[in-house]
Each structure stands twice: as structure tokens, then as C-alpha cells.
Simulated scan of single mutants.
Amino acid sequence: MFDPTVFDNLKTVLEGAVYDLDLAGEIVVTDRRDMVDLASFSRTYTITFCLPSDKERTISCSVRLAMNLEQIAQELLQCSGRPGCELAVMFFLPIRRYATCSLIESALRRIWGEKRIIRQTLRHDFPHEPSACYTNEITIEFGRPIYEENIDDLQEMIPYMLDSLEQLQRFYQM
């Protein structure tokens, strides 16, 4: 019989919580990826969604759960230590001005707290026109692995993601 890994258990809970919201009409799931990288022997699961009011799907949230070779081996070989996964929450939205990033960070810190690592990456097509938009990729990291005992925390983060999507609407193309 297959014994699921920490990754499998966390992925199942995350996926269920997100699809429950999709079925309730609170979000729209737009993408899902369940990847096994045989070159580095790692696993990554990403699920992406947006608010149903965002008909153009311009502002989205992706939740990424990952387990690398060391973490997988630690669990499968029953080595000392606790096997865990890495979790990141990412938001994507178009903005026009670089200065908007500090406003976005302040809004997200109010939701996620001061201890979270918030990283923003701006992208644009070349040649960049002054009136063109950047794509802002905002990544929230937690600075530590998550474990099976954090399953409830995973579900409790969903409202933070929804609140973040709602707050980011204010900065759309700003």
C-alpha cells in the first residue's frame, strides 16, 4: 500500500480547500500544475485562482507547495529530523508605476504580518513604452518549512489570500 508523503497530505488539503471555494463561487481556479522534476528529484504543486468579479483575470493568486530531494529523502529514508515542504503565495497584477510597489507592500504587510518575506519582481516587454504596464509578481514566503501539523494553518491562510486579492484590486494598473 502507498504511504503518502508529507507533500501528498499537504497538497490534498490545499487542493481541497481551494476547490471548495471554487465550487462555492468565491474564486475561479484558472490553473493547476502538479510537477515531478526527475532531473533534480523534486515535486512542486501550484494552484492559481482569481476572484470571480475579475472577468479579465488580471489579478491572480498562486499557491506553490514544493519538496526537494533532501526533504523527500529525509522522509522516505526515515532520517532524523522532520520532513517538511516549502510554501509560497504569489500574486500577479499589472501596474504602471514603480512607486506603487511600496503601497502594495504596506497593504500586504497589514494582512500577512511583519515576519513574512515579501518580494516583488517587475517585468515588462521590450521595448518598454512609458505608458506600458509592468507585471508585478509578488511572492510571500514564510522562511521555514511547513509540516503536517501545519495543515490547519494552510486552511487558515486561504482568507488571507482572498483579502490580498481584494486589496490588490486598488492597485490595478496604478
Rank of each mutant, 00 (worst) to 15 (best):
residue 121 T to L: 02
residue 104 I to F: 01
residue 112 W to G: 02
residue 120 Q to T: 10
residue 120 Q to A: 08
residue 97 R to Y: 13
residue 99 A to R: 09
residue 99 A to P: 02
residue 95 I to M: 02
residue 111 I to R: 15
residue 99 A to V: 10
residue 93 L to S: 00
residue 118 I to C: 07
residue 103 L to S: 15
residue 121 T to R: 03
residue 116 R to V: 08
residue 88 A to L: 06
residue 90 M to D: 10
residue 97 R to H: 15
residue 101 C to P: 02
residue 89 V to C: 09
residue 95 I to R: 04
residue 117 I to G: 04
residue 106 S to F: 13
residue 99 A to M: 03
residue 108 L to E: 06
residue 91 F to D: 04
residue 92 F to Q: 02
residue 106 S to M: 11
residue 107 A to G: 14
residue 119 R to L: 08
residue 91 F to C: 10
residue 94 P to V: 15
residue 110 R to A: 12
residue 107 A to D: 15
residue 95 I to K: 03
residue 98 Y to H: 09
residue 103 L to E: 15
residue 103 L to K: 12
residue 110 R to T: 06
residue 92 F to R: 10
residue 112 W to K: 01
residue 111 I to D: 13
residue 96 R to W: 01
residue 108 L to N: 03
residue 92 F to E: 02
residue 100 T to S: 15
residue 92 F to C: 00
residue 117 I to N: 10
residue 89 V to G: 02
residue 120 Q to M: 11
residue 101 C to R: 03
residue 108 L to W: 04
residue 88 A to M: 06
residue 91 F to A: 05
residue 101 C to E: 15
residue 90 M to W: 00
residue 96 R to S: 12
residue 114 E to R: 05
residue 90 M to F: 03
residue 105 E to P: 09
residue 92 F to N: 00
residue 115 K to I: 03
residue 118 I to P: 01
residue 91 F to Y: 15
residue 114 E to L: 00
residue 98 Y to L: 13
residue 92 F to H: 06
residue 104 I to Q: 06
residue 104 I to V: 13
residue 113 G to C: 07
residue 94 P to Q: 15
residue 87 L to D: 08
residue 107 A to Q: 14
residue 109 R to T: 11
residue 108 L to Q: 00
residue 110 R to E: 15
residue 97 R to D: 11
residue 116 R to A: 13
residue 105 E to S: 08
residue 108 L to Y: 03
